[in-house]
Simulated assay, not measured.
Amino acid sequence: MSAPLLEVRNLRVQAGPLEVVRGVDLTLRPGETLGIIGESGSGKTVTCLALLRLLPEGLKAEADVLVWRGRDLASLPDREFRPYRGREMAMVFQDPVGSFNPAKSIGWHLRTALDRLGAKGPWRPRAKALLADVGIPRPEAVLERYPHQLSGGMLQRALIAMVVALEPGLIVADEPTTNLDNIVEQQILALFADLRKRLSAAFIFITHDIGIAAQISDRLAVMYAGDIVESGPAAEVLAAPRHPYTRGLIATANALAARAEQLAEIPGQLPAPGARPSGCVFRPRCTWAQDGCEAPQPLREVGPGRQIRCLLDA
């Protein structure tokens, strides 16, 4: 088994005195895709923004260990960390519009990315090839266009081309198909699958869509209220979920896929960071709650590569 590209231990994110993400552990190897699933507000995006030090003002991240290619970056000053962002670890955002300068052409953006890479020779042939690689027709013409002149799907492809230009070892995709129609969504997913074959990079794919997670992930991490509550090989987690929250997510997804007249819903709602219940944070919504759930639950091994934060099967 290849050595990990990324190892993270006890990652925490705080907003003042409130914990937004608590004790997240992650390991990623070259060519591996980790899917992170959960409801909106569960901490998926914040976790990945913390990895790249892109958190908005007011949030602070700490980790006991953050090792990238053998070097611990956890205590690295921001100035020294900056070269790793984009060049080593990059992110494809849910809404690509915010990733582009509206006053600059697509060609300018790609040239800037290639300059950062230190690419030699004329930039235009390389930029055209990058756009063609992500399925953009007539790339020469697209180089002259501005972001507002491209559709959402085309702009997402252009952003992916910029990321690929930097040849990062880790690509984080934050729900990159959310605002796209089904046909374009499948095209973007196929593009990620192709990139995975051609690159040695690791991928983190954030999604709330169980079907997408099943399609693209090797392993899954299920997040709830800032905690990872279950993790393991994607096929095993989806076929035999162990945590009540994971079971609820999959039951709802299956009902939607089957166009059921009545959806299987998880009762209640996600707690705000300042209103977390004591003990198991999922307890107020859990139909399997029992004696002992009033105590905090550690993430424990329940099989090879499988972890669960729950008393079930204890």
Rank of each mutant, 00 (worst) to 15 (best):
R196A: 10
G135C: 11
A214P: 07
A90D: 13
L299Y: 01
T47Y: 06
G16T: 04
G43Y: 05
A251C: 07
S40Y: 02
R116Q: 14
L195F: 10
A202C: 05
G86H: 07
S105W: 04
E144S: 14
R276A: 09
S278L: 13
G226C: 13
A161L: 07
G248F: 12
L311Y: 04
A221H: 06
D209C: 08
R276T: 02
R53G: 09
R219Y: 05
P277G: 06
R157I: 05
A119E: 08
G211Q: 05
A158Q: 03
R300E: 14
T177M: 10
E301A: 15
Q290F: 06
L66R: 02
I136V: 14
R12M: 14
A61T: 05
G23W: 02
A158Y: 00
L195M: 15
P296A: 15
D25K: 00
P271Y: 06
S40P: 01
D227M: 14
E175F: 14
S40M: 12
A15F: 07
K104H: 11
A221R: 02
G248E: 06
A255Y: 04
A15K: 04
L59M: 10
C48P: 00
R138T: 13
F192C: 06
A132T: 14
L110K: 07
L270Y: 01
A3M: 12
M1S: 15
V67G: 00
T27P: 00
A201N: 03
P284A: 09
A260F: 04
I206P: 01
V97R: 11
L312D: 03
P168Y: 09
L199S: 03
Q215W: 15
P176S: 09
A173Y: 04
W68R: 03
L256H: 02
G169R: 11
H148N: 09
T47D: 04
H109I: 13
G118I: 11
P17T: 12
E80G: 02
A239H: 05
L54H: 08
G135M: 11
A141Y: 00
W68D: 08
I188K: 00
G58I: 11
